[in-house]
């Protein structure tokens, strides 16, 4: 009888647990799983998403892997992501270390350095678009006034300068997030570790190498994964600044996906296939980064 009651109790407990989890499961299913599954499903069709659905099997994937445009867009994406993320971390760590010190006006500098992160991406992209504008941009005017250039330059219209300019804007926009994470990480490192290191005669570099860096590593890795995936699939600022141009100089894979779906021939199936490939790449990136972290811990 006791066993039966216990079984019933277990059933009730399971039901209660299930009830608590249910809202989360429903929300996740609606917001994440359904769109993902739908996107994956669409990748196997030639479709206008409404009344024309022709099953094409793996054709969209075959086309993607044989299309030189995808490789060219992927290469631009890889260059863009590596440089943006590397500079985010460089600036983020340097500024976090500075702001972690007891310097005069620390609050003011904290607010100032976080400002780019507070503005919407569209606003920032439009702002820099006008700053870089060839005919009436303040950047050209300043360089001309200082005598660095004789005539206006087309920064966002140059095949060689457009990507560096886009990277610069994305670094400017994105470093505060890394800085805040690093600052939080730095402040969670117990101060007695620094005291012990100093007592042991460690110099500044050794303190950073053996105390600060290991203490920051968990935050560092989470931020690295988030930042890499975020910028790998970034669209907004690149689209506003250059729309992927000139020619294909700043066409990342996400820009290519958007154009395939909405600007070329409404190739929703093909662009969904590209999106599935990007998803796989992002999963791979996060797996590699997690593996590296685990191996390093061992």
């Amino acid at each position: 009888m006791a066993g039966s009651r216990s079984f019933r109790q277990r059933l009730v407990d399971t039901g209660t647990t299930g009830l608590f989890i249910l809202p989360c499961v429903i929300t996740l299913s609606l917001l994440l799983i359904y769109p993902f599954a739908y996107g994956f499903y669409v990748a196997f069709f030639k479709t206008n998403l409404v009344n024309k659905w022709t099953f094409v099997g793996l054709d969209n994937f075959v086309k993607a892997f044989t299309d030189s445009k995808m490789y060219s867009a992927l290469w631009v994406t890889v260059k863009f992501t590596i440089v943006v993320v590397a500079l985010h971390f460089l600036l983020g760590i340097v500024f976090a270390l500075l702001l972690n010190k007891d310097i005069a006006g620390r609050t003011f500098f904290r607010v100032l350095l976080v400002l780019p992160w507070l503005f919407p991406e569209v606003v920032i992209a439009n702002l820099w678009k006008w700053i870089f504008n060839a005919s009436s941009g303040i950047f050209n005017s300043a360089l001309q006034a200082l005598g660095f250039i004789n005539e206006p330059m087309s920064w966002l219209g140059s095949m060689t300068l457009a990507l560096p300019c886009v990277i610069f804007v994305c670094v400017w926009k994105g470093y505060p997030l890394v800085m805040i994470q690093m600052l939080a990480g730095l402040q969670s490192i117990p101060t007695d570790r620094y005291e012990v290191a100093k007592l042991d005669g460690a110099n500044k570099w050794q303190i950073f190498r053996y105390v600060t860096f290991p203490g920051l590593k968990p935050t560092l890795m989470v931020t690295l994964i988030l930042d890499t995936v975020w910028w790998f699939k970034h669209v907004t600022m690149i689209f506003v600044l250059t729309s992927g141009g000139p020619v294909n100089a700043t066409t990342t894979i996400s820009i290519e996906i958007y154009k395939q779906a909405f600007e070329y021939s409404n190739a929703y199936g093909y662009s969904a296939a590209l999106a599935v490939i990007v998803f796989a790449i992002c999963v791979l990136i996060s797996l590699v980064q997690r593996r590296l972290l685990r191996e390093d811990d061992k």
């Binding site: 504008n133 005919s135 206006p152 330059m153 087309s154 920064w155 966002l156 219209g157 141009g245």
Partner: peptide
């Protein structure tokens, strides 16, 4: 004017 590939319709009007 310089920067022709950057010039969209609003910029051209400007």
């Amino acid at each position: 004017p310089p920067g022709v590939v950057e010039v969209g319709y609003p910029e051209a009007v400007a």
